[in-house]
Design a protein around this nucleic acid. Structure first.
Lengths: 346, 346
DNA sequence: GGGGCGGCTCGAATCGATTCGACCGTAGAA
DNA sequence: TTCTACGGTCGAATCGATTCGAGCCGCCCC
């Protein structure tokens, strides 16, 4: 058996309470006693108070969960997510808590630790679908503060978002003002199944992804008849594929493409160039996010969103909720960055 | 007060033990009773057993910690780390555990949850310095299985590594066989302070980074007099800066540069091209890792290491240690991938 | 010398669930 | 009819630490 605090206390000739005081540092303990306890601990090979017991008693575990909508590798492919993660880290810094990575991939398999069974103090949901509703209900019951970034999951949980629709509209207006009328779109996936393919009314109607829907609405505000492709995820590769399909219909080739993420936009640019089209000469491309895509030769025209701020806001939100303050949603605004991937149509 | 299992049991008219059985599913409970308990729980707004209490009693928390050597954002900049993370996820899948992200950034500040105070079942250290030695000692005392990836941290903790020295040597030999004699190197940082600058004997001597040291040795095996620059981190930007410095000394410009990571190598390629040098015509560049750098026009000549496998092996190692099996180290081998960034010198 | 006060230490309750062995009633077997 | 077996339930101990109020002791001051 591994030694416990009680063993250490016994060895040091003090009570368990005193030994606890000696370890936690707080509370009045004479130096002599403290030293005796520490010595006893060292001798017994005691590794300090068990975090499990401590967290039960204290009611805090020092862990904040981050729930991703997709598997870890996929999520981290997009720098936006990493930036948000970084922001969250900053936001919860006063808590000194660790980040527990969880994924919202359908039901939890068997013994899998999910949102419901992890000893966490708070939860940040990133881009989660309403599918997590049931889990969120459990969190509410347990009184675990939760915040959602981009994704409405429940009434009383605050949401950190951006002006997806308005931002996209501004971008679309910019394209229109340049003279574009023939515009296509490459969207993020609409459902949990991440169906790839043409943009159909069914897909739109069955959408569980607010971000994709809102950005699409913004585009429709300016180009009501816009059509396009739905990507399976936010990646350069997906963008390239979608771009190829959209651009190899010469009869009706668009003069501009709105992509719902910079990664997708980058893919579209690459697809265009592979097809011998010049950007922005033959094709204008508008992105979304404002990340710097490593290696892309262009300065993407895009809607810059404050990813790190979003993460930080989410972190700060759970901190204040943990402190008993009421939850507060927050909406950031994006700004149009005009780069060199947009120009008037030929 | 939030309801507890006892409250639910009372409401349902059963004992706490029976209620527990009803929730955990295991154990013989009549359907009628189970239903009554669940109904009582629903009525009371009970959110299921408290994970904290459960983990204390069971002795397992369902959480595996991953300790990174640098802050989250920095670590995830390098795809190698993400790949390893993904591998770890696969490796520990049978555990169904969540991944707790922790960083080894010096001492733990105040209330910060560190390796020592987090309720984890196992720990995977990634590229950590011996600085974590003290924490590892605590883990040993607590009997928490630990594994290190690339970084010797203690005698009895198994290490998952690759043949850093031999691999680099093979790469260097390849360069030598191509005819290069004037070769420089861009290394990963040698110390926790991440000092950037020229490669000096002091830096080398004070190294706490095995990976950088071993790869350097491998290069020295072939080019004993090799000199170069130390980067502050593995990134394209750092590689570019180092490359610029190395290549703007025309009097003694190297014909080949060995970079200790693909990100650094990419930066070197970009630096060369910015200076009007052609790769591989004027300069050969050798990388390390075998990641596909998004957007780089070249097919990097590099030493491919099995990152995902490393992560998976680490995950499997902690799983087997958790099952009581003795720890086992493992060393993978890297293979030279010849791309289009190396050629004989002019 | 007595009262009071302050600093340290101790007991005991508590956090919330899990689990093992005991117990009970009934049904089937001998 | 009695014994066995078994499904179902309950009590009580346990996991390991924290915390609050009480108590003890010594010292200072009147």
């Amino acid at each position: 058996m591994r030694p416990t605090l009680a063993d250490v206390a016994a060895k040091a000739g003090v009570s368990a309470s005193t030994a606890s005081l000696a370890f936690s540092g707080s509370g009045p303990v004479s130096d002599a006693t403290k030293e005796r306890v520490l010595a006893a601990a060292a001798e017994l090979g005691y590794g300090g108070p068990d975090p499990r017991a401590r967290s039960l008693r204290r009611g805090r575990s020092g862990i904040v969960a981050v729930v991703l909508a997709e598997r870890v590798r996929a999520a981290f492919l997009d720098p936006v997510n990493i930036q948000m993660l970084d922001g969250i880290t900053e936001g919860i810094a006063p808590l000194g808590a660790g980040l527990l990575l969880l994924t919202d991939t359908g039901e939890e398999g068997g013994n899998a630790v999910g949102i419901e069974s992890a000893p966490v103090d708070a939860v940040v949901l990133i881009g989660c679908s309403p599918r997590v509703g049931r889990s969120v209900e459990v969190l509410r019951r347990r009184g675990i503060p939760s915040v959602a970034i981009e994704g409405a999951v429940g009434e009383d949980i605050p949401e950190i978002s951006i002006d997806n629709r308005e931002a996209t509209r501004r971008g679309a207006e910019y394209l229109r003002d340049l003279g574009h009328t023939d515009v296509a779109i490459v969207t993020l996936p609409f459902d949990a199944a991440r169906t790839r393919g043409p943009l159909t009314p069914e897909l739109e109607r069955g959408s569980t992804a607010d971000t994709a829907s809102e950005r699409l609405r913004g585009a429709r505000d300016v180009f009501p008849e816009i059509s396009g492709r739905v990507a399976a995820t936010s990646s350069i590769e997906e963008g390239r594929e979608a771009g190829k399909v959209l651009l190899t219909v010469p009869a009706h080739r668009p003069t501009a493409i709105i992509a719902q993420s910079d990664l997708l936009a980058t893919g579209v640019v690459l697809a265009a160039e592979e097809l011998g089209l010049s950007v922005p000469g033959d094709l204008s491309v508008l992105g979304f996010d404002g990340i710097r895509v490593d290696g892309l030769q262009h300065d993407l025209t895009t809607l810059e969103q404050p990813s790190v701020d979003k993460g930080r806001a989410a972190g700060e939100a759970v901190v204040s909720m943990l402190a008993g303050e009421p939850p507060a949603s927050r909406c950031f605004t994006s700004t149009l960055h005009v780069g060199d991937t947009t120009a008037p149509p030929r």
